[in-house]
Amino acid sequence: MSDVIRMTNVTKKYIKQTALKDISLTVPIGKIIGVVGGNGSGKSTLLKLMSGLSLPTSGSVTVNGEKANRKTGKVVSYSSELSSFYPIFTVREAMRFQASQFVDFNLAKAEEIMKLMRLDPHMKVKALSKGNRGRLQIVLTLAREAPYILMDEPLSGLDPMVRESIVKGMISYVDLKSQTLIMTSHEVAEIETLIDSFIALKDGSLLKMADVEELHETEALRIADWMKKAYI
């Protein structure tokens, strides 16, 4: 069994659009990977396919050698860009609910991240601001000790003043010996110093997948500058 997420010639079509076109890539364990691209480039669809929440129109997605489907949820911790959770729960109840459903959910770790995120454990999810709902998503996703952590726009809705410290905090909770974190973000500059590799998408096609170091060395450019050049 290979501990990787592998996409082979994956195309995903919706009713009126093709979200991803013929994507082939491999994601190993032990990396922090940023998925970058403009609006509608297919970032969210890419994560959904990797998490088994979405199914490819053609091609194949495998996680640890098995076809990605609903069962993939056992090894993939996924958070949506919608930052939504059951509004009926309080923050602590939400954590306990996740702990009851996922064997790899570490409740002590969740409490720790919750404190870092300065969330009130007694607050109802429905009463949380958009930013705090985003923080709760981070807590619930990172507290799982799953091999793959997929976060769709985890920084959106967060205050720009605290964003950097939260991102650094997030990274400190990822164990790179056994986990890979893949996150999409519009804020390329804010994640560039933290990520090892990046996947750049444009109009559903894979533009580049490379190590950040490699980009710095070969093109002497930061990701944001490379994107400006590549996306023209």
């Binding site: 959904k48 998490s51 929440l53 609903r70 069962k71 949820g73 056992k74 993939v76 996924y78 949506s80 919608l82 939504s84 959770f85 059951y86 459903q101 996922f102």
Partner: peptide, 14 residues
């Protein structure tokens, strides 16, 4: 259905 990804990401069989 309002947050289907949550329900479907639950690893328990349907």
């Amino acid at each position: 259905g309002n947050h289907l990804h949550l329900w479907l990401n639950n690893p328990q069989p349907a």
